[in-house]
Design a protein around this nucleic acid. Sequence first.
DNA 1: GATTGCTCTTGAACCTTCCA
DNA 2: TGGAAGGTTCAAGAGCAATC
Length: 283
Amino acid sequence: MRVRSTQAQLRELDDVIIQVVEDNAPITLRGVYYRVLSVGAVAKTEPAYRKVGREVKRLRETGDIAYEDIADGTRWTIQPQTYDSAQEAARNTAAVYRRNLWLDQPDGVMIFTEKDAITGVVKGVTRELQVPLGILRGYSSLTFAHSAAVSITAQDKPVYVYHLGDHDPSGIDAWRDLRDKLTEFAPDADIVFDRLAVTEEQITELELPTRPTKRTDTRTAGFEAAGYGESVEVDAIPPDILRRIVRDGIEQHIDPRALRLSKRVERRERQSLFELAAEFEEE
DNA sequence: GATTGCTCTTGAACCTTCCA
DNA sequence: TGGAAGGTTCAAGAGCAATC
């Protein structure tokens, strides 16, 4: 039985979608759907997801949502970085130069997310704090896990690996799988694993909306036997709170004194680069 | 032990079905 | 008949359980 939405209902949904995009842009279609879901505007169903997708497409075509406000992290072009001149390259290098603040820190930190929809929410924090952000899309591939393990081993100091994922059978198991792979590929590394979200404490403290655990998932029996209860999407955590969780998780590993020193060195080195760029232009 | 068929992640296109 | 809703497919990487 199809339940058709009235024009008024669709316009109400449009208003919610537009607001979500305004507050979170750039955001993926999945991200929009989960934010709309969290305010109760649609159901947690595939048809509801498609409905949001159709409305987002229509709103982009009408100009109510800018095309660049919806991110697509799964498709990209490969193009070498080029410059119009050596002077431009020198100026650009000076402008974007950032000293690795983790060079002088006792620990390393890496963050992994289960899905793209979360990436857009937290990447501002990880970028600012210069922490690698890995997107697993469900289970990590062997290639991706091996690459991360090589990076961890190269740091030659304790590395804290944090995960953001759904509290459901696959989310929990994908996290177990990532830990196993990194441990196997980096057997001599000092790795500390921790799950930043979703935790059972967060479900209670934040009163996160749950959904019935999918019966079709073959991991459900083990999930329930472990006493995990109902499932919760990581997207259900409000973006501001999720960003705070990530920031707190990272900043606990930053020595403020070493950070201040690093920033001073960065300013001096950037100034040197600008002076080099200026010399280029005089020649 | 190998194979099969299900599960998860993402975004989009195209076609069909159904209802007001 | 227009438009909303549903069905299917594609890409890529993986895990788990049942069956052969």
